[in-house]
């Protein structure tokens, strides 16, 4: 006779959260391979965007606006690369529900016996790995276009900023992923709008000092501001981990608040979606 209590607690059947989270990493990797043409499109877009924006520094030199273009080149190059990274992470995570709706798998994925926290963390891990690969490719293609001096870059410190900062960005991605859950038809556009605001306030292409004071206030609550500060500090100024402790601590704080906070918000939104019947395929 079947024992339901044993079945619901069977250790061999319900494996650890790491294995379950890896299922999402593996699935997204399979999808990524199948949609390689889209990946190519985004890679070309990323490279062209990086080049187009960084050439502004060359123009500034030619027009006599600045005498030292190399600093501006590196500033803009890092800004576009970091934004390529952040937007890739945000896209991958915030489309967690949109993607399932589009494929028509939302009901089967969300009724699987895997906690939402594990699901979202799995998607976040893939998002970070995917964004790292794409950004490294953009970096490798774009850098030869400019004679940038990376001699004093502290790559280890930059890697630490990426690892530490990615948790806070993932939290932001999960938070924006709530919107498609609440608004099946317009939620995706709303999450892109949030990305646009992060782009505006975080000092991607300029220092946040140039923002009007009322707008600058918002830059303090964007983890992307500190992520960019950390990366620019490590690569342009050669700052080590010790020098970046303040920035890293802020990023850790953002991660500690945003990751569990966003998962909790997602859980509340999911309950509302279950109440109103939104957890279904649209169109």
């Amino acid at each position: 006779m079947l024992n339901i209590a044993e079945r619901t607690a069977q250790p061999g059947l319900i494996r650890g959260p790491v294995t379950l989270a890896y299922a999402f990493v593996e699935r997204q990797t399979n999808l990524w391979k199948r949609y390689w043409a889209w990946e190519l499109v985004w890679l070309v877009y990323g490279v062209v965007n990086t080049l187009a924006i960084t050439f502004i520094a060359k123009e500034a030199e030619q027009a006599g606006i600045t005498t030292d273009a190399s600093h501006l080149v590196l500033f803009l190059l890092l800004g576009t690369l970091v934004w390529a990274y952040l937007s890739a992470v945000l896209d991958d995570i915030s489309l967690v529900i949109t993607w399932e709706r589009w494929e028509g798998t939302i009901e089967h994925t969300l009724m699987a016996p895997v906690s939402r926290a594990v699901h979202l963390i799995g998607m976040s891990i893939f998002g970070v790995l995917h964004a790292i690969v794409r950004t490294l490719l953009i970096f490798a293609i774009a850098v030869p276009f400019f004679s940038v001096d990376l001699g004093q870059a502290n790559w280890f410190a930059a890697a630490v900023v990426i690892v530490v900062g990615s948790a806070s960005v993932a939290g932001l991605g999960i938070l924006t992923g709530v919107l498609p859950l609440l608004y099946p038809e317009r939620g995706t556009q709303m999450s892109f709008m949030i990305q646009a605001v992060v782009l505006l306030i975080s000092g991607v292409y300029y220092s946040v000092d140039v923002l009007p004071p009322w707008l600058r206030v918002f830059s303090y609550i964007s983890p992307a501001t500190y992520f960019l500060d950390g990366i620019r500090g490590a690569i342009i100024d050669g700052d080590g981990v010790q020098d970046l402790l303040g920035t890293l601590a802020t990023l850790v704080l953002f991660g500690v608040i945003l990751v569990p906070g966003s998962i909790a918000v997602f859980a509340v939104a999911e309950k509302w979606a279950r109440k109103t019947g939104q957890l279904k395929r649209q169109g």
Partner: peptide
């Protein structure tokens, strides 16, 4: 493979 894995199967 994906749907089996999220139900805990290797």
């Amino acid at each position: 493979l994906f749907f089996g894995r999220v139900y805990g199967f290797s």
